[in-house]
């Protein structure tokens, strides 16, 4: 199963997204959250994102969705800190974080691979740029 990592500046946002996504699917999927910094501030934290990636990592890949600017930068740094053979299985995608997470959760629960999930984003008109 593809793993899903949701990165936001706010822990409340990622918790809310998790609630919404889980409402749509019958069973648990590999989902990890990184909301806010480790000391409770609004922001993003490269270490927490890295931990989240490792929690859900498999060779099927990990999809990372993010909210604002520094979330992308921190996610990129977390990805770059992994060995190249892992990096190639990690996709950071620019899609609306709520719709993207719900769509991804459904696709993942159906056992779809990374390419199918990306296609599902396109079909739903979610992609901003890939």
């Amino acid at each position: 199963m593809v793993g899903l990592v949701v990165v936001s500046h706010s822990p409340k946002i990622v918790e809310g997204i998790k609630d919404l996504a889980l409402q749509m699917i019958p069973e648990e999927i590999p989902l990890a959250l990184s909301g806010g910094t480790s000391d409770g501030r609004l922001g993003t934290d490269f270490q927490r994102i890295l931990t989240a990636i490792n929690q859900v990592y498999s060779e099927d890949g990990v999809l990372i969705l993010y909210d604002l600017g520094s979330a992308l930068m921190s996610a990129e740094m977390a990805k770059e800190s992994l060995p190249p053979e892992k990096q190639q299985n990690i996709s950071i995608l620019k899609v609306p974080i709520v719709e993207g997470a719900v769509t991804a959760a459904v696709e993942i629960s159906l056992g779809k691979d990374m390419n199918s999930i990306i296609n599902a984003f396109k079909e739903a008109g979610l992609e901003k740029s890939f």
Binding site: D39, G43, F46, S70, M73, S74
Partner: peptide, 15 residues
Amino acid sequence: LVSTVGGAAGPLYGT
């Protein structure tokens, strides 16, 4: 800096 700043300045100054 990357691990502790929290905002965009963390990845930027860290890098």
